[in-house]
Design a protein around this nucleic acid. Structure first.
Length: 744
DNA sequence: ATAGGGTTAG
């Protein structure tokens, strides 16, 4: 074998064949035909005769003629496994030396002779092939030669080779990608990424998706944007971003094209995309299109979620009858049926809708962010002859606040003052909250200061007197004084901030920690000491200002102030650690809160699991799996999304993207997975648990062939990593195959 | 009957 390598090596550099090949008159068929070389498999391990000498090392694909290899094929079919192994070793070694043309030539010829290419692919040494690619990247930085090699590999069905494990190589590619983009080559960059993604290059590391999307936008190239989305591991999100971006540009046509593509690409309805495209219809002024999209959902018997309904109603807001028909459907779907039930009760005379019930209904819509519905209820109420009181006004302002509608909220507040209703702290807080939700932080502070200095001017005119004759009079200035004046009569009312007021202002500090700290001091000074909500908000602000240490330190300050940090305070701090990639600190805090007997909730778990987008080592995977197990025990249903991601990282590319099964390596289709990941995820998780690391029983019962393969791959990788760390498997490895699904 | 802190598909 060594001899053969020498022959091949010499032929690839200075062999006279090279000169012949460079001659345009040279024809490959003039080479001594390899078919004539007879291979006699011998019982003793004796190297088989050499494959045909490679004709070239030039950077073009080797000049094969299919016919030439076809004749060889019939003969090769009977290649015994030992010979297959020999060719695989030979090819792998050539690849390692960077002689990819020879590698491809041998591979192509062998594969042409086999019915099942994976037989040969399985025998190739991934390590050697990736070493060769790494070498080209490292020593010569030749990204494009590598890309050509990869495309060659791809053509031969080597897609599943994972060749980008090394940091250095990935950086070389990233540099090249940067360079291309700097010169405006988005198309080139996407093509590069398409090739790379077939070889499990983590393209997310290459460049921010927003940047690529932005460049595609600038070129108005929806096709390119779609191509990029398709290879992104979070295609569903990227699609939505693109749809929205086109919407912002007023380009509904492109947005719709992308929307259609997203449906093609993603399995299962994506409510997020539906919601986005409906919003975009609104942005582009085509409300009729939004209706047809909604109808498409209905035709497919897909139940829209509350966000889709909300968007649809907002987009069609001008057509109240349509909004009501949509609402009617929403009600029948059980999204919210409170109003109709209440109305029914009223019609039966069981209940008289009063200002209390109206206020409850308004709150329901306010919480669901259905502010238009909230305002509609107010209309219904006024028609029923009931006057809005302070609670109603407050709820309406809250409804706008929850949707970040500052102008609307201020308008309501002014209307309220005009109607002679005196705001209390809660009502003022609702308006401040609206400013925060609408990110108008300075406006919140300006309002606060002006209220504190001047209070409110409430209109107590004759109108107010008449209106309040019906309604509840709480929160209304006494009419007795106003009656003497027939004209509008402004009255002064004071403003009293509460702890909640300060808490909202704390949030309005954004990332300005000093401002927040000053507010905390002010609270202490005026006798409104910060409560646990104030402290959590302070943690948030501090973290936002960039100080992870400071944020963690505030947990201690809380205890000093005799306020025990609760689950939200800890979750806030953990979130900051996670965002700033202080993963160890995050896990320390997680352990600490449990020591203090504070039970993590679903939000805590989710926040913590977002810590890793890639799982580098076994330790990291196990750390996350522990959290999963804990979550399960605590009665929370783990979101498969994260676990799926984890498993993707672990199964050597058998699973790719969201729901897609890599089809190049094995000819399995998604259907083979048979429905949801549930059982599969559980099995992989169970097998990767720490305590299972030493003695191993792999139970494949109930899994399909593909699933079983995934589980086995995951376990094998764990064994490999443990071994590399010096912890070899001590006992035997048992694999239980199901009776029906004999997997291996 | 109305308010304030952590998630909300990366």
């Amino acid at each position: 074998m060594k001899d053969l390598l020498v022959i091949l090596a010499s032929s690839s550099t200075s062999h006279p064949l090279n000169r012949r090949h460079n001659n345009p008159k040279f024809k490959p068929s003039s080479l001594p035909s390899p078919v004539t070389t007879k291979i006699t498999p011998s019982p003793t391990p004796k190297p088989p005769p050499p494959p045909p000498p490679p004709p070239s090392t030039a950077s073009r694909p080797p000049p094969f003629s299919t016919v030439r290899w076809d004749s060889r094929a019939s003969y090769c079919t009977s290649l015994p496994n030992t010979h297959l192994k020999y060719y695989a070793d030979l090819a792998s070694n050539l690849a390692k030396d960077g002689k990819f043309h020879e590698f491809l030539m041998i591979s192509e010829s062998v594969i042409a002779s086999l019915t099942e290419p994976s037989e040969f692919v399985g025998l190739l040494s991934t390590e050697l092939v990736s070493a060769g690619i790494a070498r080209i990247l490292r020593e010569e930085g030749k990204v494009w030669s590598v890309v050509e090699v990869l495309r060659g590999l791809d053509k031969l069905g080597f897609g599943a080779l994972k060749v980008f494990d090394g940091e250095t190589e990935r950086k070389a590619v990233a540099r090249e990608c940067r360079r291309i983009l700097k010169h405006g080559g988005v198309l080139e960059a996407v093509e590069l990424m398409e090739t790379l993604s077939g070889f499990h290059f983590p393209i997310r590391e290459l460049v921010e998706s927003s940047e690529i999307v932005g460049l595609c936008m600038r070129k108005r190239d929806s096709d390119l944007a779609i191509r990029y989305a398709c290879i992104h591991p979070h295609a569903h999100i990227v699609f939505c971003t693109i749809i929205h971006e086109f919407g912002k540009k007023g380009d509904l046509m492109s947005a719709l094209t992308v929307f259609e593509a997203s449906k093609q690409k993603l399995s299962g309805p994506n409510m997020y995309a539906y919601r986005t495209i409906i919003d975009v219809c609104g942005l582009c002024g085509d409300y009729l299109k939004s209706r047809s999209i909604y109808e498409e959902l209905l035709a497919k018997k897909i139940t829209p979620n509350i966000y889709v309904f909300n968007s649809l109603m907002n987009v069609n807001a001008r057509d109240l009858s349509y909004v009501m028909s949509v609402y009617e459907h929403m009600r029948t779907l059980g999204v919210t049926d409170i109003y109709s039930e209440v109305q029914q009760l009223e019609s039966r005379g069981v209940l008289k809708l009063d200002v209390f019930t109206y206020s409850t209904i308004i709150k329901v819509f306010a919480d669901a962010k259905l502010w238009r519905m909230a305002l509609k209820i107010k209309g219904d109420m006024l028609s029923a002859g009931i006057t809005a009181n302070l609670v109603i006004w407050s709820s309406l302002i809250s409804a706008c606040a929850n949707s970040g509608l500052v102008e609307q909220a201020i308008e309501l507040f002014d209307d309220m003052l005009l109607a002679g209703c005196v705001p209390n702290s809660q009502c003022c807080n609702a308006l401040l909250h609206a400013c925060v939700e609408g990110c108008q932080y300075d406006k919140a502070f300006r309002l606060f200061r002006s209220w504190r200095e001047r209070g409110f001017e409430v209109n107590v005119g004759s109108n107010a007197g008449v209106e309040h004759a019906h309604g509840n009079s709480s929160g209304t200035l006494s009419n007795s004084t106003s009656k003497s004046h027939n004209l509008t009569n402004p009255r002064k009312a004071p403003f009293t901030p509460t702890t909640a007021t300060y808490n909202i202002l704390l949030k309005a500090c954004g990332t300005n920690y000093l401002r927040a700290k000053a507010l905390i001091d002010e609270m202490n000074a005026i006798g409104l000491p910060p409560n646990y909500i104030s402290w959590s908000t302070l943690i948030h602000v501090c973290g936002g200002s960039g100080s992870v240490e400071g944020a963690v330190q505030i947990l201690n300050s809380m205890r000093e102030a005799a306020i025990q940090p609760d689950v939200i305070a800890y979750t806030t701090a953990i979130k900051i650690c996670v965002e700033r990639k202080f993963l160890n600190t995050a896990f320390i805090l997680f352990a600490e809160m449990k020591r203090y007997q504070i039970k993590p909730n679903l939000v805590t778990y989710k926040t913590l699991l977002r810590a890793r987008s890639r799982y580098g080592s076994l330790q990291e995977v196990q750390q996350c799996l522990e959290i999963y197990q804990e979550m399960r025990k605590a009665g929370y249903k783990p979101n498969d999304y994260y676990l799926k991601q984890l498993i993707e990282e672990w199964c050597e590319g058998v699973i790719q993207n969201d729901n897609q099964i890599e089809t190049k390596f094995s000819s399995f289709k998604k259907a083979d997975l048979g429905g949801p990941y549930g059982l599969l995820l559980e099995k992989v998780a169970k097998h990767l648990e720490k305590r299972n690391a030493e003695s191993m029983v792999i139970d494949l019962q109930g899994l399909t062939k593909v699933e079983a393969r995934i589980v086995v791959l995951a376990v094998l990788r764990m064994i490999k990593e443990n071994y590399a760390q010096g912890c070899p498997l001590k006992d035997d490895l048992f694999i239980i195959v199901g009776v029906k699904n004999a997997a291996y």
